[in-house]
Design a protein around this nucleic acid. Structure first.
Length: 482
DNA sequence: TGGGGTTAT
DNA sequence: ATAACCC
């Protein structure tokens, strides 16, 4: 076994080669599907330039770690391996390993039910996400070595656009190498692979890269997971779950209709959530086929043009959304839920705890938040959606003290948060909260070099030009000092 | 029903 | 600031 030199990807323009349309008109789709998967105005994301007018197909891999929190806990506590293990947050088992699943424990099962089903179940507390978050980002960083285009979805899933990586390998191949090409992992539907079909060959190479990704994640981090390889995010995500722990599946275009047809309810379509499902059901739409054949005009009226067009495309397996590199997080938050919090001092204590953890995290990140938000949940039988929030800019003198351990940044921050609190909660009246959360957002990098420096925050002003002939600048909106 | 995240309006 | 979506 020799090292494959993975090396970097450059601005190599691997375009041309007019290819057949992506999805064959398989499976009697009644509505006009149009040119499938053409990306109109060339989205140029990280060098994924799509020449205007050329048909574009992509190779996307969805990587989905197996019961992630449970795996992390088994790495931290090897003595737990082999035992049925659940990760607990408050009175919920949020995930569990496969030993526990065999014994009937399900994700998001209450601790009571889980213990009843499985008395030997070992529970560990998973309310502190620090380790999960750290390892989650290690996985993302590892995947970024294969292609810089990696989008996170939660802590345990990533999309990777490996179109360019595949192209590079394809062009490195000699024609007589084709005979040694073999798919890695499962092929959806057991469909046969045609080595004369350029799309098949690209997806096949994609399956090999997916296998290398999973190998790297296992060798370097000790984690197992699934992968799905397909021509867009929707399909890669759907296909990754077909063989479940620690296996991978590639979808050839001809099996697309079978894949989406395998869903027994539209709710299983990623992107169609609780609310949309309810509205679709009120229209009599419950299966993928219902959605495919429903009048687009009526759908647009009910859901708005944006959602309607997007999800109706989903029903045909079409999804032109790009893999958007996540980069560093847009926000940091800490939350805690509880049975009851009904006094201001009690709330202040909890807020101080949340804030202390957050300050720690934000300090390690290096960037500085410019916005702070407080979120509450009031007690109500009304089940879900009862969160309210208030946010405000962080005063610049507080921001500056952020990195420096010397100064007390807690006090001014707590003062701000308590003002936000009193803005939402009338403390002179009885109240009953069940959740508090603090969020830092609007993160900005420190002014480091030229580009990160003063000019970054100023925008050229045409209205005024100084007599010296030098350009003058205006402040770019909000909270800046000096 | 936890403790997080994202984008769109 | 909220509403929708994702895990």
């Amino acid at each position: 076994e020799e090292e494959e030199d993975e090396d970097e990807e450059e601005e190599d323009e691997e375009e041309d080669t007019m290819d057949p349309p992506l999805l064959g008109a398989a499976g009697g789709a009644p509505s006009a599907t149009g040119p499938v998967e053409t990306v109109g105005p060339a989205p140029s994301v990280h060098g994924q330039v799509v020449p205007a007018g050329s048909s574009s197909y992509r190779v996307i891999v969805h990587v989905d770690l197996d019961c992630f929190y449970a795996q992390v806990e088994m790495i931290s506590h090897p003595e737990l391996k082999g035992k049925p293990l659940g990760v607990q947050q408050k009175y919920l088992v949020v995930t569990c390993n496969y030993e526990a699943r065999k014994l009937g424990v399900k994700k998001l099962m209450s601790v009571r039910d889980a213990k009843e089903k499985c008395p030997q179940l070992v529970l560990v507390n998973g309310e502190d996400l620090t380790r999960y978050r750290e390892i989650s980002y290690k996985v993302t960083e590892l995947l970024e070595e294969f292609s810089p285009v990696v989008e996170r979805l939660g802590f345990d899933e990533n999309f990777v656009d490996i179109t360019q990586t595949v192209e590079k390998r394809l062009h490195q191949l000699q024609s007589d190498d084709y005979s040694v090409l073999a798919v890695s992992g499962h092929v959806y539907n057991n469909q046969s692979v045609n080595l004369n079909d350029v799309l098949h060959v690209r997806l096949l190479i994609g399956s090999q890269i997916a296998a290398e990704m999973r190998e790297a994640i296992f060798n370097q981090l000790g984690l197992t997971g699934c992968a799905g390889v397909a021509s867009n995010k929707l399909l890669s995500k759907l296909v990754s779950g077909t063989f479940k722990p620690n296996q991978q599946t590639v979808l050839m275009p001809e099996s697309c209709q079978d894949l989406i047809g395998s869903l027994d309810h539209i709710k299983q379509m990623p992107g169609i959530g609780y609310k949309t499902t309810k509205r679709l059901e009120s229209l009599g739409i419950s299966s993928v086929h219902d959605l495919q054949t429903f009048s687009p005009e009526i759908l647009e009226k009910e859901l708005g043009i944006s959602v309607a067009q997007r999800i109706q495309k989903f029903s045909f397996g079409e999804d032109n959304s790009p893999v958007t590199p996540s980069g560093p997080p847009q926000s940091f938050s800490e939350e805690d839920s509880f049975k009851k919090c009904s006094s201001e001092v009690e709330a202040k204590k909890k807020i101080e705890e949340l804030l202390a953890s957050l300050l720690n995290r934000v300090c390690k990140d290096g960037r500085k938040p410019h916005t702070i938000r407080l979120i509450i949940r009031r007690f109500s039988s009304d089940r879900y959606f009862n969160r309210e929030s208030r946010q405000c800019p962080i005063p610049s003198h507080v921001i500056q003290k952020l990195g420096t351990g010397n100064y007390d940044v807690m006090t001014p921050m707590v003062d701000i948060l308590m003002k936000l609190f009193r803005n939402m909660v009338n403390v002179k009246m009885p109240f009953h909260l069940t959740l508090l959360s603090v969020c830092f957002s609007n993160l900005k990098s420190l002014p480091t070099s030229k580009k990160g420096s003063i000019e970054f925050y100023l925008t050229p002003s045409s209205s005024t030009t100084s007599h010296s002939g030098k350009r003058t600048y205006k402040m770019k909106d909000t909270h800046m000092e000096e």
